[in-house]
Design a protein around this nucleic acid. Sequence first.
DNA 1: ATCCTGTTTCGACAGACGTCAAGATAGACG
DNA 2: CGTCTATCTTGACGTCTGTCGAAACAGGAT
Lengths: 113, 113
Amino acid sequence: MQAGGGCCQPISEAALDPNQAAEGATVFKALSDPIRLRLMSIIASANGEICVCDLTGQFDVSGPTISHHLRVLREAGLVDCERRGTWVYYWPVPDRLQWVSALLSIPEVAATR
Amino acid sequence: MQAGGGCCQPISEAALDPNQAAEGATVFKALSDPIRLRLMSIIASANGEICVCDLTGQFDVSGPTISHHLRVLREAGLVDCERRGTWVYYWPVPDRLQWVSALLSIPEVAATR
DNA sequence: ATCCTGTTTCGACAGACGTCAAGATAGACG
DNA sequence: CGTCTATCTTGACGTCTGTCGAAACAGGAT
C-alpha cells in the first residue's frame, strides 16, 4: 500500500512536501480524538485482536459513536477488521503505526547536535 | 510520567487511560492539519531555529493563518519561540516529539509476536 | 420464517476548526 | 516623536466533526 510508503525520513531530517504532509495529517487526525486514541491503544495492546463488544463497554458514548470512530481508524489504515459470525474483530496494522512513529522520531545524530 | 514528560509506554504495550489519551490527542490534533504538519517538519528540520518570515512564503495562506497554526503547535508543546528585534524565531521541542514518537513505537518483542 | 443480539449506516444538530480581513502590538530607524 | 515592517490578535463566516436516536443489516437461535 504504501501511501506514504514503507520507510520514510523523519521530519527532523527533511521537511515534508505538501503531499506527504497531507497523508501524514490524515493519520494524525485519526489519532486526534481522545476516544479514538484510546480505542487505538486498546486494540494495539490487545493480544492480536479484540471484539467490538469488548470495546463499547469501556466508553461513555453510544454504540454508533464507537462504530464511527472505528471507521475513522480503519480509513486511516491504522486498524483492520473482519466479521466472524455475530461479532466483529479489530486488530492493529503495525506497519502503519511504525510509519507514523518513524516520522516523528529523532535520529541520534540530530538529537545531539 | 508526566504529561509530556520523559518516557512512556507505547500503546502497543499498554492501553492508555482517559487522561493519557486526552493529553496525547491534543498533540496529535496539533499535527492533524497538513499546513501545521508541514510547518512542524520545516521547523524540525531547520538547523536550530527559523524565522517566521522564512515560513510564510512557503504557504498559500495568509500571515495570520500561519500565525494561528504556529500558536497551536506552541500550545501543544511541540515548538517554542522568541522575539528578537523585528523577527520571531521558532524551534522544535525534541522531548515532546520523541514522546509522541515513543507512544506509537512498536517494541521488537511486540512486533514479532 | 421469525425473533433477538451485535454492529453499522443515516439524518440531524451543536460545537469546534480553518480561513481571511481588519485592527493591534513590538521593535527598528529616522 | 512618527513611520515603517514584521507579527500577532480579534471578529466573522462557512465547513467539518462528534454525538445521538432511529433505522437498516448480518447472522445465530428458536
